[in-house]
């Protein structure tokens, strides 16, 4: 009876008794969710264009954040550093297309996947060699993002909204809207979808496969940069950022590997779900449930909706 009370009643009593904590958990879950969505978006873009799970996406986040901070440390103004990082990512996208994708076109998906693992280690080695491993602070103030926090006093406590979290949420939403419009309403976006469906058919109607790949890797680089800025601001800029990148896996399972809106909805489900579950039900299981809770949700989706919320359902004729 006691256990049933602890599971079914006590958490809701607690939510009602301390609404400030509950609202804070919702806000933190929302911010984490949008940031998970951003990470997942990088994977989705590449998967949409080439059907490849890009294992190197997390290290692209590290590379973007590290190079931005390093350029700034060299005395280059913050926004010029951002432009330099974008140039760096355009060059990287071009190199990936020339040296990897073009060579492996028509190969099995597993081979392409393996090539992104190889790319990960090349980037780790190169970034370590060039930028070193010392952690740095993200240059959020220098980029003009507001500092400090807003406080909403409530009962004995209050709800705190960090300005950088508000910025992250706003920018993530704007970015997702722009990308959704770009990929559904523009010629390039439609070209990308055509390549994803059948690259040989796309080629036959004059869509340049190589150009599409460069564009999509470059856009994934932009997403990595935004992700790197905001995750870097929450912790610090170091190689450890790549760990958070794999948080996108359950998000992708829920949202689907090919849906931009799925990435953000999946991110929010995971972000909100894991925070609320950790705080109110976690202590019953010894805490630390956040690490696996996302995968439990993903598992449920795999059982009942394996293509995810917005993913394309595969129907293969036999």
């Amino acid at each position: 009876m006691e256990i049933l009370y602890a599971i079914l009643i006590a958490p809701f009593v607690e939510m009602g008794s301390y609404p400030d904590l509950f609202i804070q958990a919702l806000w933190d879950g929302f911010v984490a969710g949008t940031l998970y969505g951003l990470i997942a978006l990088g994977f989705v873009l590449i998967f949409k264009a080439s059907g490849v799970f890009n294992f190197s996406q997390p290290i692209l986040v590290v590379l973007a954040a590290l190079s931005l901070v390093s350029f700034y440390k060299m005395g280059i103004p913050a926004w010029i550093s951002v432009i330099l990082v974008l140039i760096l990512f355009y060059v990287l996208a071009w190199l990936v297309e020339r040296l990897i994708l073009r060579q492996l076109v028509n190969q099995d998906g597993n081979i392409l996947f393996m090539s992104t693992i190889g790319l990960t280690f090349i980037i780790i080695g190169a970034a370590q060699w060039i930028f070193g491993g010392v952690p740095s602070a993200m240059i959020v103030n220098e980029l003009g993002f507001p500092n400090g926090s807003l406080e909403w006093p409530m009962f004995d406590g209050g709800v705190y909204f960090e300005m950088i979290d508000i910025s992250a949420a706003v920018i993530a939403v704007i970015m997702i809207v722009i990308l959704a419009v770009f990929f559904s309403k523009t010629k390039i976006g439609r070209g990308l979808r055509a390549v994803a469906d059948d690259h040989q058919a796309a080629l036959s109607v004059g869509i340049s496969l190589n150009q599409i790949w460069v564009i999509v890797w470059f856009v994934a680089g932009i997403v990595a940069l935004v992700t790197g800025i905001f995750w870097g601001a929450r912790s610090d800029v170091s190689f450890a950022l790549q760990i958070i990148g794999f948080k996108a896996l359950p998000v992708l399972i829920i949202g689907g590997f090919t849906s931009i809106q799925g990435a953000i909805i999946g991110g929010l489900i995971i972000g909100l779900g894991e925070k609320i579950f950790e705080i109110y039900w976690g202590p019953l299981l010894g805490s630390g449930v956040e690490g696996w809770f996302a995968y439990v949700i993903a598992l449920v989706f795999l059982l009942y909706r394996p293509q995810g919320l917005f993913g394309d359902k595969l129907i293969e004729r036999v």
Partner: peptide
Amino acid sequence: LYVPVAGKEMQNQSSHWLTIRK
């Protein structure tokens, strides 16, 4: 009060600190 942080959550501790706040 034991608050374990999984390795892959080490940069994502908001819920751990909400537990501490609670």
